[in-house]
Amino acid sequence: MEFLFNLILLLFLAAVTIGIIGVRNLFAVVVLSGAYSFLMATLLIAMDAVDVGMTEAAVGAGVSTVLLLSALHLTNTEEAPAKHSNVLPMALALLTGAALVYGTWDLPRYGDPDTPMNSYVGDEYLERSIPETTIPNVVTSVLASYRGYDTLGETAVIFTAGIGVLMLLYGRRRKGDDDEGGDRS
């Protein structure tokens, strides 16, 4: 049953992705990418990653879609017809895909509890979380306690990106008086 649910969601994801490749109207692309994020969030929750699923629904389907729509508002909503042949990109993608599929041959099958990844470090965190931090949600305890520096680094990345966005758009507001502007956060 778990396999089947997964399979259906994965096929939906692939279908939406094919839609994103084919559609030329950028509004449709943004809406499809929102649908893609929600499907991904559902799939992550089906794979027991509830925290990741909720973050993906809020950030991927919510914030990203808002950012993309505001960018569309300030630019153009139609994609120009392709001028180059798509043979070379397609060949590159297929080559990469073939190499990756070859790589998956050695990977453990989905849902296997006895893989090295699931046997040592994951179990360790599950056993230690309650005695050492008293937090029942292990994802929270690893994120905030054991790997707190990762989260600090993540905050630094967001801070840098925020400064970058502000600097890029601040100059814009002073130079261009032709449109309203300033509806980006």
């Binding site: 990653a49 990741v52 993906e56 950030v59 960018a71």
Partner: peptide, 27 residues
């Protein structure tokens, strides 16, 4: 739980990349 933690970080960094990219596109 470990991959979940790593991917939580990746999601937020992903949206930061997207925001910066979109700001560049607007300019």
């Amino acid at each position: 739980p470990l991959p979940h933690v790593l991917i939580l970080t990746a999601i937020v960094v992903g949206v930061a990349t997207l925001a910066l990219g979109l700001a560049l596109v607007i300019r």
